[in-house]
Design a binder for these strands. Sequence first.
DNA 1: GAAGGTTTAAACCAAGCGGTACAAACCATT
DNA 2: AATGGTTTGTACCGCTTGGTTTAAACCTTC
Lengths: 196, 196
Amino acid sequence: MPWEKNFDLDDALDKAMVVFWSKGYNGTSMTDLVNAMEINKGSLYNAFGSKDQLFNRVLLRYDQQVRQKRFARLRDVGDTRKIIKMFFEDMVSEAIEDDDKKGCFLINTALNLPNQPLEIQKIVTEALIEIEEFFMEMIEKDQKEGRLDKNIDAKEKAKSILALIVGLRVLARGTYEPQSLEAIKAQAIGLLDPQC
Amino acid sequence: MPWEKNFDLDDALDKAMVVFWSKGYNGTSMTDLVNAMEINKGSLYNAFGSKDQLFNRVLLRYDQQVRQKRFARLRDVGDTRKIIKMFFEDMVSEAIEDDDKKGCFLINTALNLPNQPLEIQKIVTEALIEIEEFFMEMIEKDQKEGRLDKNIDAKEKAKSILALIVGLRVLARGTYEPQSLEAIKAQAIGLLDPQC
DNA sequence: GAAGGTTTAAACCAAGCGGTACAAACCATT
DNA sequence: AATGGTTTGTACCGCTTGGTTTAAACCTTC
């Protein structure tokens, strides 16, 4: 009967995630991965197949473990303004705390989308659509329950919020002045105010 | 006496620009460049030194030829709302027309900023700061001349506009639905409306 | 404790990378 | 036409890339 692996698959994936996340696909070599994952090449290929497959799996894992869980948590908050406030505050503090300035793995990948294989394109595109739909649903719910003006175009506002999220995450990878990120946050929060 | 080169330097730089612009630094090989520039390796290294130096020079060229010229043109328009409208309309039509979905070379590079040499970081950072300052100045001028409410925080609005620009450019590299880009454009134009 | 199958570690591979060397081709001057 | 310095094209370099092979180490079952 087979012998069990003596390293933890999920743990290895998490370590690989950090590398791909901060360096991108092209910027990451198999040597980088082997070092970070603390397993050797043989095991890596045996367990994950290839660099592409590993990237794919790791991106999917980020989508599920980080993004989907985060939005599930936010959904429970209810009020859209509060959600926006919490989400943007999280992003700002993440940006300030992370010395590697990794930003968001999905958005980092989104910038290179035209050069990525179709499967990757699909993961990223669907994630972005889900973010947009999430905000649209939240706004519509608030409108139905009287917390928000019904004249607001929910879809358009959701798209704008997504654009601000992307903008913040990209700018945060550069010379992040907290002050700039705060300005974007303020703009996002004010987005739902009347006549806006 | 020396013999003159029989290829045009600027022309070669423009051809190199397209490659770096759409594939990024890591995604571009010297072979890609040699093919695109239609000169051979010897001439390339003789004329430009190295891959890094070429990238540097090409990015600087983009900054001067594309970005600075564009904003000089916009400055003449005067009214900030009109400027925003024109600029975002330009970006949207560029995004729709460009089959390569190259986006903006500076913003593409901005996403990888932490992994770039200092010199590159400087070019990108200064460009972003100049964009922000441009909008801030335009808003302040409009306020001074009575076209815009003086309660508006010019700096904060300028930062928000930059974030929307970045967001649009990144999202436009993905599955660009013109409708989404239009929503972002509308948001940017409405940014200066009262109580916003 | 021998068998059977799996995982590990390390050596190894072809191909492509960025970059260089050098002789031939070239043009302006003499 | 011969000279001198430059540019060009090509062959070549060492190194790293992503990926494979192989044999020893390993655990489980009988």
